[in-house]
Design a binder for these strands. Structure first.
Lengths: 358, 358
DNA sequence: ACCGATATTGGGAACGTTCCCAATACAAGT
DNA sequence: ACTTGTATTGGGAACGTTCCCAATATCGGT
């Protein structure tokens, strides 16, 4: 049996575990520098201006000596700032999401924030679960890119004062900033390119628009612009969020058979572009000689497939970066109504929209 | 003008802001249920077995009434469990990283952990910065997939007792579990496929191997297996981590010109496959009729390019999932030496490795 | 009826910060 | 000299948990 000292302070166990040396605290720094912990706290907070020159130097020396780094959890507990931003995305494997995440991560890094990334795999239930988890970590702000079926949960957090930014899609009933593509401009760019190339029949393929604003906008603008350009236009929505290859094959085949005048397919986003390419590949020997293809969203491999796939590229990286910028402004207390920030798309014209006059 | 201005203020600001109702604490629940906070804490901790049936019911009712959710920061501060896992990746836009992240996120979700994702964009300095940040959040474990140039920083955390798992690549001097591909099996699979198809000259293209174990292993096994199969083998390393298209074009051209016997290019990973395809596309009219191509890493578009690109696919999703599983075991205190877990690859044979007898 | 187990429960003291307020120092104004 | 002000600095009480230890209740066994 150990003969422990009679004092009422027993030694904390974790100090005894190998390699688990207690990390220095603000207190240790203060003692080492011969000052009060408040001053050390001020050094790391936004009140460094209050400190005298000699104080700053002594603090820095002590920090250096002890290898001190502040505990963000403790700091987040007492103060308001956790430095944590939540990001809820519907599909982390979607190229759009990846690029957006890349931009967002960069912006966070530049401003001293860290990203708590949550993937819902398109499940509404998982989205709710993730929102609860993020709430538990007292995130300072939230970036949302999901189907928007949980308006209630989101609105609750929003009204509780949580800064929030939607990416790509607006959600009805959520008074909240949004950052995304100028769908009007993007689709118009695509359709007029197809018209200029001489296509006369257009088909847009998309996932179910449900309530998703960007999808609805693309369909709407597509119909309107095609009509204005005197082109016949058809829209096919997948019955499921996840594209069924059989459905797609049947749909495309039917549209192709009905042909006569030269036609082109407009893919509403990158995921659709991939699915359509796979379908055409299975259906036709030489797809792009019989039908034009234009995709919204640039993908790394678009130049490689057949004669190259024409795309309307959105600056996804910038959108992710912009989402964080917008969010940080709100976190810092920027007042005013919810704002919508849109970015413009650029056309990458390639062989898939060169009309072959057979 | 707004009534709320940041700055000095006698009243705590956040209680006045609209919608900033103080969130309920464990204390509130206890009072509402007429019991002590300790019991409520036990309910959420791993000591629910201690509680009587009636106690559990009263707690649950109170939680329901108040909409209580525990504060993870506070809980992490006093206890050891933060529920946070750090993930440091070299390139978040690499398809490998994305799939790995997907698997890891799933595993975390299933076990009640959350991921703090850090992208270093291949910068050693950023990696160090990120490690410091993660340390500040008292992460319970760390998943690392980087170049491994910061052995010192990593080893320090490791020796301080931080559970850690490396993904894809082992780092010398870091006594730490690793999860990745069975490179021996994967490359052997690829090379024997090429031999069976009748190719006689092989070229492997890779980024600089530096100290990266998986790259070194692939090169080594490639050389060995090609030799064993009686094939001529050459390896070209990009001078930079980021592939320079001009360098690649020149390198490939030189190798192609030196030809005679039918040759095939082995791309050491997905990023290389993309670059090689772009290069061949620019160089040759009908690339795959003149040279075979095989890529390590399956990519969504491999079936679409030319006659389809043959790949050796690694189960990246499983690797990410496995990394978290391994990490959690260590977090729970699994003892023993560092272990290496490898997954086996599968061949996707496509047209790019069908030898054309001209 | 008493003693010692064995279940439950509760009361505080941590955890490492930030924030409020008070205290000190020195210069300037009257 | 006596306020008044303006920089600095420090002390202690939060923040919302978990953990240690003590308290109470229950139950056999003697």
């Amino acid at each position: 049996m150990t003969a422990s000292t009679p004092g009422h302070r027993s030694e904390p166990t974790h100090r005894l575990e190998p390699g688990h040396a207690r990390r220095p605290t603000i207190h240790d720094v203060a003692r080492d520098a011969g000052i009060s912990k408040t001053s050390v706290s001020r050094y790391f907070g936004h009140e460094r201006a209050l400190l005298s020159e000699s104080m700053v130097q002594r603090i820095e020396a002590a920090i250096e000596r002890l290898g001190f780094a502040p505990d963000r959890l403790a700091s987040g507990l007492r103060g308001r700032r956790t430095g944590l931003i939540g990001m809820v995305v519907a599909d982390i494997r979607n190229p759009y999401t990846v690029d957006m995440l890349h931009g967002a991560e960069l912006a966070c890094r530049e401003h001293g924030y860290s990203l708590l990334v949550c993937n819902t795999d398109n499940s509404d239930q998982l989205e709710r679960r993730h929102l609860e988890v993020l709430h538990g970590y007292s995130i300072e702000g939230l970036v949302v890119n999901t189907r928007g079926r949980n308006v209630a949960s989101l609105a609750a957090r929003r009204e509780a004062g949580l800064p929030m930014v939607l990416v790509d899609r607006h959600i009805d009933g959520l008074d909240c900033d949004m950052v995304g593509l100028d769908n009007e401009q993007a689709v118009t760019l695509g359709v007029s390119h197809l018209r200029d190339q001489g296509y006369q029949r257009l088909l847009m393929v998309t996932e179910p628009t449900d309530g998703i604003s960007s999808r609805k906008a693309r369909v709407e603008v597509f119909r309107h612009q095609a009509h204005a350009a005197g082109l016949s236009a058809e829209v096919q929505q997948s019955p499921q969020e996840r594209i069924d290859p059989d459905w797609l094959a049947a749909t495309l085949m039917q549209w192709l058979r009905a042909g006569g005048r030269p036609g082109a397919i407009v893919c509403a986003n990158g995921v659709i572009t991939l699915a359509v390419c796979h379908a055409l590949w299975a259906l036709l020997k030489t797809p792009f000689e019989q039908v034009g293809v234009l995709g919204i969203d640039e993908l790394s491999w678009c130049a490689l497939v057949g004669p190259g796939i024409t795309t309307v590229a959105q600056p996804v990286d910038d959108i992710g970066y912009g989402a964080i910028t917008t969010l940080l402004n709100r976190i810092r207390g920027a007042p005013g109504k919810a704002e919508i920030t849109t970015y413009t798309a650029r056309l990458h014209a390639r062989g898939s929209t060169t009309l072959k006059t057979t």
